[in-house]
Amino acid sequence: MLMCGNDACGEGAILAGCAFYAGYPITPQNELTAYMAKRMGETGGVFIQAESELAAINMVFGASVAGVRAMTSSSSPGISLKQEGISYLAGCELPCVIVNMQRGGPGLGNIAPAQGDYFQAVKGGGHGDYKIIVLAPASAQELMDYTYIAFDLADKYRNPVMILGDGLLGQMMEPIQIKSVEGRPLVDKPWALTGCKGRQARFIRSLFLGDGALEEHNKKLQEKFNNIKKNEIRAETLNIKDADIILVAYGSVARIARAGMELGRAKGLKVGLIRPITLWPFPEKTIADISGKAKKFLVVEMSAGQMVEDVMLAVKGRAEVDFYGRMGGGIPTEEEILKKIEALVKQS
């Protein structure tokens, strides 16, 4: 059946047993909020249109404290408003899913697709040392599938998980297959606050005033993040074994870059593609391992260049890393990418 990415994302959440959604209107993710209003009504979940994105993330905090699968969604400016809440969620080790359909920035920007929130998502937009798992879908189907697994990852690691899409993905309609999810066990949450009947009273907080207490807590968090790095990296690679030039791109730009790769291949140029699916934990090894052999990397983003820095970190100078980007909602075309590839080939 045909679905826009926003709706597919919402259905992924419903399939995963999301029982609480708080949202706020902002283009280009409005379809998702409307979809959740409809579907939560049908599935007996709670839907609230909050007074602000900031209130919405804190409502999600409350639902998560109570042990329920909870989600919020917004678009760039709204996600900025949620950063304090996300830091609290990470500090309290609370699971939830946050969907960001990126739009042009900074400031009010525009409502065209963009990828300018990469740093905010993967380096931590809020205060303190914390990480959130960031999944980057590249299609409506992946929006559904990744939102679905985002809830499992959130519960597994008791940590917020972000779906980093963009306005193009959100509003483009594509064919979707809905997998049946019968009989899937939901994670037991012994830590949730449900009233202290039959047990000691518990509390969930991120304040640690005791001497050295917060440092201990941070060590525990860092251990978790390292554990996530070990187990949850996801990436897709195409034709990188014999490639002279490897494109690195995520989300909708990865699909355009793939077309650029195919144009290059058609002209006999050896071009490959690496598509990070988890932006954090970043697939450093996939890039590092191929760095010695490939001659050049070309990172393509809808921004002034953010993921390019992580690629450079992974390459560690063993290969040249170039960048091609469009800003302010501009969308690169495969021809532009091909032109850049040909320029790079000529230089070497």
């Binding site: 029982a19 409502m59 409350g62 509390f203 969930i204 907080r205």
Partner: peptide, 23 residues
């Protein structure tokens, strides 16, 4: 001596809303 959570400054009613609606 009962279950308590802690909200970000000023966001207590939003957190309480989230809890009460699901419980």
């Amino acid at each position: 001596d009962f279950d308590v959570t802690e909200a970000a400054h000023g966001r207590t009613p939003a957190v309480a809303t989230g809890i009460k609606r699901v419980l």
